[in-house]
Nucleic acid binder design. Structure first.
Lengths: 140, 140
DNA sequence: TAATAACCGACCTAAGAGGTAGGTAAGTCC
DNA sequence: GGACTTACCTACCTCTTAGGTCGGTTATTA
């Protein structure tokens, strides 16, 4: 499995925020309810998105979170990279990991490289704006 | 991470067997040595490839394993599916898992579907024969 | 019959997934 | 100023999986 619930939830929250933008700040309590996700769990996921400047939050009544860009300026790959740490399909491609000692003679390495490029390319081409037009646009 | 060491090792073993085919049966002891992988760990990975008919093994001296097809008839996807169980990038696409209750209204589902198709298509187009021409064809 | 090699099952450790619980800090409304 | 609301922080928990090791048993051949 490449993408865990952490990353998938982050995408759903971002999409939810996008759909309710223009209504000021959106409280996580509402998002958790709408999306059927534990509020406490969401609170653990969001801080890294704030730190990276993808969203901003304000405390107190009427507060919540808000997007800092237009929905089409959020590539899915960026959100996954922040929440998942990395999205490389195999460990030896993880940036941060020291290069495998056999990488020079490794027969499979070129394939993993190409796969990585393929996946990253696709996930960079999809944005939150694309996710907003879901299978059932009846809601909203 | 989508592909664990289990699947990666299986690919390296299959490639090794392909490179040494025509020399009769190849003992796992040799492969483990050449590839720098624990023999005991390999012994845990191979049975499922035998059961699926991708390789065959014979006991006793002079025994070992042998490919049952030509190298270009082994798509990488088949080997990974056997050893990894599944290669879907997200849990909700795993066959065997009951469909997610929110799949109908899920905004992200179509994207995961497309990603899955993309990855599967690529890994089905690469075969063991392609892996044999590695980065350094000096060996062999 | 001894050596070799596939095969089988139990076990182990560390890490990560996927949370829960409880509290603090900051801001708003009355 | 006090109640309320919301983000934010820290600690902890359970279960599963990765990634093995160890010791043995069966089949085959020199």
């Amino acid at each position: 499995m490449m993408v865990s619930s952490r990353g998938r939830y982050a995408l759903r929250v971002m999409t939810d925020l996008a759909e309710h933008r223009g209504e000021g700040y959106t409280a996580m309590r509402e998002v958790a309810e709408r999306q059927g996700i534990s509020l406490k769990y969401l609170e653990k996921i969001l801080p890294c998105l704030v730190a990276a400047g993808l969203i901003e939050g304000v405390h107190g009544k009427g507060g919540g979170y808000r997007l800092t860009r237009e929905p089409d300026r959020y590539p899915v790959s960026e959100i996954l990279r922040l929440t998942e740490g990395d999205i490389a399909p195999v460990a030896c491609l993880d940036c941060g990991t020291e290069t495998c000692s056999r990488s020079a003679e490794c027969r499979t390495r070129p394939m993993w490289d190409k796969l990585n490029t393929l996946v990253d390319g696709y996930l960079s081409s999809v944005t939150i704006a694309d996710l907003m037009e879901g299978p059932q646009s009846t809601e909203k």
